[in-house]
Amino acid sequence: MKLSSLTFNQIGIVKAVHGDDLSLKLFEMGLLPGEEVALENVAPFGDPIAIRVGEYKMCIRLNDAEQIEVSLKESN
């Protein structure tokens, strides 16, 4: 699934990031394959969203979040 369709209380694990410039920037910012991500806030107009990456919070637009593939972490 895509990061953009993650809902609150779900934890995703990054599988792949598409887009050349975008993926490089995201890698530099610590959003790497294997890393856990979670949705934390949605901006008032529905876009962008704030996600938790590693130990910090990052803001990303929905169309960029669509470029990030994640798999759901089994919750227990």
Binding site: G19, D21, L26, P48, Y56, K57, M58, C59, I60, R61
Partner: peptide, 12 residues
């Protein structure tokens, strides 16, 4: 020019 992502840290 360049990509127009908007990626920004939201510090505590």
């Amino acid at each position: 020019t360049g990509s127009n992502y908007f990626i920004m840290e939201l510090p505590g």
